[in-house]
Amino acid sequence: SQNKVQAPSPALVLQSPALGQPMNVAQLPAWTAYTVFADGTGLPQGHGTAAQGAQVYGNQCVQCHGAAGKGGVAGAVAGPVLPRAEWIKSTRPAHTTGQYWPYATTVFDYIRRAMPANAPGTLSNNEVYALTAYLLAEQGVIQSDQEMNPQTLPAVNMPNRDGFVRNPQVPAAGH
């Protein structure tokens, strides 16, 4: 503005009322507490396997994402994983989890926060680990018997991990 404070009287200063209330982070509601970062920060205790995940998937996901995640009304969540040079040749290259997503933690995080879309927040942490294992195993990204847990999940070697370049305008820090 063209008209900044020129000679404020003692009582008139631009400042904050400081009305934030201190809080115990252990009491944060799930939706904001459960950000899972790529290095595993934020992952809860728990574990699950593809076999367990297949069951949950068949009960709560298949109606929207189709058999084996290959696509239903809500699109594919698992797909073939092509070499990048081949993948890029398609007119509209697939963005499926195994093909495109750089971090397995993101699969966990997203399922936990948003799925199933008609009843989010109803899955247990074990179920989310299991579903993640199921989708990754279906796509050959992990072995079908490998358990997903706070240690193994961030260590998954996602095929497109090095497929991204970062806009130089943002911090380079953090994965």
Binding site: L28, A30, A33, Y34, F37, T41, G42, N118, N157, H175
Partner: peptide, 30 residues
């Protein structure tokens, strides 16, 4: 840097911290 290498650096939360205590308007499509 492989994500897995850094994993041990991540703070793993106890299961209790992530039990769902979301407001009712987050329970389903709006």
């Amino acid at each position: 840097l492989q994500a897995g290498v850094a994993a041990s650096a991540g703070k793993v939360l106890p299961a209790s911290a992530t039990e769902t205590n979301n407001p009712k308007w987050m329970n389903g499509p709006g």
